[in-house]
Design a protein around this nucleic acid. Structure first.
Lengths: 120, 120
DNA sequence: CTTCTGTATCGACGTTCTTCGATGTCGCTC
DNA sequence: GAGCGACATCGAAGAACGTCGATACAGAAG
């Protein structure tokens, strides 16, 4: 099977649960906390944050790996971080000819923003 | 000196930088990525996420440690996680008589929500 | 088919994190 | 002052993480 661009790897994709209520709205259950923590963890590394930002600022929220890999770490490390972002449901990947394009997963940002919005 | 409730420890408090633009608005610099990643990292653990939620749902966004420490880990571990949340600028702590109260730091949530808001 | 370029995977190393039991500290009460 | 309850800190053990060089894989080009 293709080793690339499968939408799910170890984690669920974008819509795993009935979450998305603000963190201050109702108390988070242990089961709900797990996948949400995984999304925050995906953005908890400076390199991943910059990679995500580099993709998000592009028109269409999409970029080839070759366009964003100047973040001060090696190529395998960039690939590792992009995989983590994809597994967390924040990015989707697609191969086009020789290049692989990553794009911001639709709804990913709004899910997290909803969690952080003020409850009152 | 008092070992408790100092508002800053290893990390800066709530407003470290000129960040707060949406991640998809302009590309994140390496220097800006660091403190932002630290905030996300604070919420990247399921136990911390639940502790934060337990505090945030209380009226006034405030709770005594004794009211929220049933999250399935030991008391020292709860204390450790609350410290991490405080160091990240997400919580403030204050001692009242025998009890220590933690409350959601004003503005902390909106900073992160602003980063995740849609750019378009 | 061979070579080249772009990207992913593998294996390893050092660092950081989560967790715990033991112990220390603060403030109240007797 | 002695004892107690609430919470923090210490030190250690195991797991998870970020990083790299080496290597494998995919598609394009010759």
């Amino acid at each position: 099977m293709s080793k690339l661009a499968s939408d799910s790897a170890t984690l669920a994709t974008v819509t795993p649960l009935g979450c998305c209520r603000p963190l201050g709205r109702e108390e988070l259950s242990a089961d709900d906390a797990e996948p949400i923590a995984a999304m925050f963890k995906a953005l908890s590394d400076p390199v991943r944050l910059r990679l995500f930002s580099k993709i998000a600022v592009r028109p269409g929220g999409e970029a080839c790996v070759c366009e964003i890999q100047d973040v001060g770490v090696s190529q395998p490390t960039v690939s590792h971080h992009l995989r983590k972002l994809r597994e967390a449901g924040l990015l989707l990947s697609e191969r086009r000819a020789s290049w692989v394009y990553y794009r911001v997963a639709p709804g990913a940002l709004s899910v997290m923003a909803g969690l952080l919005s003020q409850a009152d």
